[in-house]
Design a protein around this nucleic acid. Structure first.
Ligand SMILES: [Mn+2]
Ligand SMILES: [Mn+2]
Ligand SMILES: [Zn+2]
Ligand SMILES: [Zn+2]
Lengths: 136, 136
DNA sequence: CCGTAGTCGACAACAGTTCTCACATGCTCC
DNA sequence: GGAGCATGTGAGAACTGTTGTCGACTACGG
């Protein structure tokens, strides 16, 4: 049985006030800084529970850190500036259909996918941003 | 300037004999087991250099571990059975164009993307495999 | 209220990865 | 073929994100 605790409510509330993706550690620090008393383990347990609940989305950074965000109602993907981290939500039936079709052609069922697009945003580009490669 | 060392050559050779994705730790253990003397740090440095060179692809598991594979010549993505781990390479211009277009529409340049498709393969499905969700 | 199963959190433990630094070794240039 | 030196190596320590431990605490159905 799942209880309503001050801590879980507070973690959930943090994501109401926050745009974009944030790590468990960042949420913990933020709460501590604003006077909320909560343990780091509890934050980890809370975000995991929220992910299981479908309240939060989670993705993993290139560095391997898990970051979380209030789940929006629509299925979408992310366009991330690799220089400043600015994130845009993008969506489109094209890629959804393609993924489902190609999986079905290989006999796969119960199909999901992850898709992230990386680039340099217009602002960072005019400022002269670095670059990277990522085949695969 | 980049030197040719016994260790780097050996790590590179390991991926000639190996199908699919493998972690640095696994490669290290495998080499040690077969009598090759090499340090773990060196394996990490070698695979990173091979990734930078475009010789290896790397992706990150759900658990946050980086895994590597001989880069095939063509750009492609992976269709992974979440039950048995079997991996198929898939490709298609549809999704490539979609990703580039959507990024361009948002003013992004120097665009790359990552895309992984997960499902249950036919074999695991008929054996009665578990399931999972992955929105985003 | 009571009892108790679920939860908390300080801390330890873990796993993967990177850093340190003394030592070794490819490469370039004679 | 060396000499010289930038580069690479590797054992171990350090670091980072995350999960486990366990005694104390508490939400909540009865
Ligand atoms: Mn999608
Ligand atoms: Mn692609
Ligand atoms: Zn930017
Ligand atoms: Zn399978």
């Amino acid at each position: 049985m799942i209880r309503n605790t001050r801590q879980r409510t507070a973690v959930n509330a943090v994501f109401d006030e926050l745009e974009g993706f944030h790590s468990a550690q960042e949420v913990h620090a933020r709460m501590r800084a604003s006077g909320d008393s909560i343990g780091l383990s509890t934050v980890y347990r809370a975000v995991q529970a929220l992910v299981d609940d479908g309240e939060l989305d989670s993705i993993r950074t290139d560095a391997g850190e898990a970051i979380y965000r209030r789940c929006s109602t629509r299925h979408h993907h992310h366009l991330v500036c690799r220089s400043c981290g600015r994130t845009e939500e993008v969506e489109g039936p094209t890629v959804e259909r393609w993924a489902d079709r190609v999986a079905a052609e290989h006999g796969f069922v119960d199909v999901t996918h992850t898709l992230e697009i990386f680039g340099t945003c217009a602002a960072c580009h005019s400022a002269g941003a670095p670059s990277a490669d990522q085949p695969g």
